[in-house]
Design a binder for these strands. Structure first.
Lengths: 141, 141
DNA sequence: GTCCCTGCAAAAGTTTTGCATTGCG
DNA sequence: CGCAATGCAAAACTTTTGCAGGGAC
């Protein structure tokens, strides 16, 4: 139901299945390189290009989600396709998932204001995580 | 008041001022490379590293904003520092600014649910732009 | 005189693509 | 037999960093 729906189902080859398994089993949001390393553990011999192309394909079919958590230049992947958002720590860069939904009035307002037919959204909340504590940076940084 | 506040003001050298001018004058959200090209027009001889470092510095001081519109791997810059969000077309990749605010109850809910002290957020709405039209993809494809 | 900034160039990483081989339909 | 997928390796880009020269204070 997402963009670029899977009209033609993805052929789930053993390699692609392994990639999908790894992404789904990951609680963090690994980069392509990290996924490659993990898949290599259970299926030695697989090439990076295969993993890379599989990720793009799976993402296009909505089986995994591509993320930009803002840490420079690396796309991350999320095996959780149910709608959810992310919170990123402005201090240490850690992140967490969070389930919230925006009121439909917001999407409507955006559609009206811009003329775009809004179908979805990605929210990245920013804040300080519990580990970094409520205190601001101490004197010596 | 943002993260990494400007305790020590940025020294606004001619090069940095030129970079800031260009970013502020841009209605689109150019990448570092694009900004470099534009600055080169009005100030030939400036180096890419200078532009690149200036952007990082300006962003750290809150004078410009770094964006990830999801188009692969390129950070984009926004000279508009007032709070606003973006809408990206799922079809052609075009985007537009939009001014909306999330109800504070949302941020509160996220704080409670995750333990992160939420201070801000970035929303990327997805939808089809007016140019791409309301029609879904025709039979072919 | 000291320190920061600039420019040029190279390094480090990611993301993409080409191509011959392999396997499945 | 034909086509798509895989692996290896090389491109194409972005993002960062090192250094010597120059200017500002």
């Amino acid at each position: 139901v997402g963009p670029t729906s899977a009209q033609a189902p993805v052929r789930l080859t053993p390699q692609r299945a392994a990639v999908l398994d790894v992404v789904r089993a990951s609680r963090d949001h690994p980069t392509a390189r990290e996924i490659f390393a993990r898949v290599g553990t259970v299926r030695p011999g697989i090439g990076f290009a295969t993993v890379y192309r599989a990720l793009g394909l799976l993402a296009a079919h909505g089986l995994v989600r591509e993320l930009n958590l803002g840490d420079g230049a690396s796309v991350r992947y999320d095996g959780n396709t149910r709608p959810h958002q992310h919170v990123v720590c402005t201090d240490c860069g850690s992140f967490a998932d969070v389930s919230v939904e925006l009121p439909s009035t917001i999407a409507d307002a955006v559609s009206t204001a811009t003329g775009y037919a809004v179908k979805g959204y990605d929210v990245r909340f920013q804040g300080r995580c519990p580990n970094c504590g409520p205190a601001a940076a101490p004197p010596g940084r």
